[in-house]
Design a protein around this nucleic acid. Structure first.
Lengths: 209, 209
DNA sequence: GTCTATAGTTAGATAGAC
DNA sequence: GTCTATCTAACTATAGAC
């Protein structure tokens, strides 16, 4: 052991990033304090500025990371070779897996894109995202024309799928109180949604014969 | 004309309230500034404190008003005498009507209940709300037992209905960019949702014969 | 009731020692 | 690289004139 440090576990730069992630997702940009980030990182406030210059820049790092976490799910829709129903199931499964591991990201992203929409779109939306979306829309339209799914506006279908995946995470405090259930019980409900949401969507759009 | 004022339109107290509603729903509690509220009300900052003592108290007024706007829809579910399907249609219709007229309230409420959950539940949730929710849950359970709707956990059904109603309003900036549509076009999509959401839900849960 | 002026506090950011 | 001390600006809130 040639290391005389008092167990900093990892370098300061990374600790700041970890602390900032927690504080920003908890409090939002306006509610977060550089002091609180420094405290959670176990270092001095000046050091936060040393590594990341400004609150805005540090926030950008965190937001970029958070937003990009949500993107792979969309790409996934294309992967599957199967029928439209299987692709939707795959998307829901993948998307909910990611959100379950990062339950604070959805509200965090929703808020930032309201706070400064221009920055959000110019800086964080990858150029190919719109193309991918168009592909998904085309896939839905195609499936409807071939009679594989019911006749629904593909834009509404996309909104509905995202809504069913995301909503319980952004509305958790209210839902949990309204339904009067405990923390572990709500976790169980969330875990059930992979199955429930897929089933719900497929029931809604698959042609009944 | 015995009034020598320069068209204040209405008393200062009300103008402050109107300005505060706009600023708080736009920026949230942490992002809002008393100065900005005073400016939008066209009066001095000191006057805001004269009428509402503190930022917290002013915010409470606004939040109470916003949250109570969303409540009548839930009560409405009981009104209908019809079948479960009609009651759901009535709820969606009523709920979306309210949100369409107050598109900023959902995200505003979601954020505040994350910011200080304790205050939210102790101060703003009416005591009878949980009872009403239990009634709705029982209604769903009953309908499922009688075979009127598919076998779905009533809690998930309630989450799904709320999700489909609320989500496009809280995610509007992202959805609009992702789908690459203009403001009036998105308004049209929102207006369509009364029909679309009802149909989607009923397709998902009504027993096919 | 409405204003100006300012108190009191806290935030983000920097200077400079080590 | 990490700290203490401090600057500057912005915020909420109040005092006091009118």
């Amino acid at each position: 052991m040639d290391n005389s440090e008092t167990v900093p576990e990892i370098n300061a730069e990374q600790r700041i990033l970890d602390a900032a992630r927690r504080v920003f997702t908890r409090k939002g940009f306006d509610g977060a304090r550089m002091q609180e980030i420094a405290d959670e990182a176990g270092i001095n406030k000046a050091l936060v500025h040393y590594y990341y210059r400004s609150k805005e820049k540090l926030f950008s790092e965190i937001f970029r990371e958070a937003f990009s976490t949500m993107l792979p799910a969309i790409a996934h829709v294309f992967m599957g070779q199967g029928a439209i129903g299987q692709k939707i199931e795959l998307f829901v499964e993948k998307y909910l897996s990611i959100v379950l591991q990062n339950p604070f990201i959805p509200l965090f992203v929703l808020n930032e894109m309201h706070r400064s929409p221009e920055t959000f779109f110019n800086e964080f939306i990858p150029p190919d995202l719109k193309i991918r979306i168009k592909g998904v829309i085309a896939m839905f339209t195609n499936a409807a024309q071939k009679g594989e799914i019911a006749d629904i506006d593909p834009r509404h279908l996309m909104i509905n799928i995202m809504a069913l995946c995301v909503f319980p995470f952004v509305a958790r405090p209210m839902l949990q109180r309204m339904l009067d259930i405990s923390d572990p019980e709500f976790e169980k409900v969330l875990a059930e949604r992979k199955q429930v949401v897929s089933q719900f969507i497929l029931n809604a759009i698959m042609i009944k014969n």
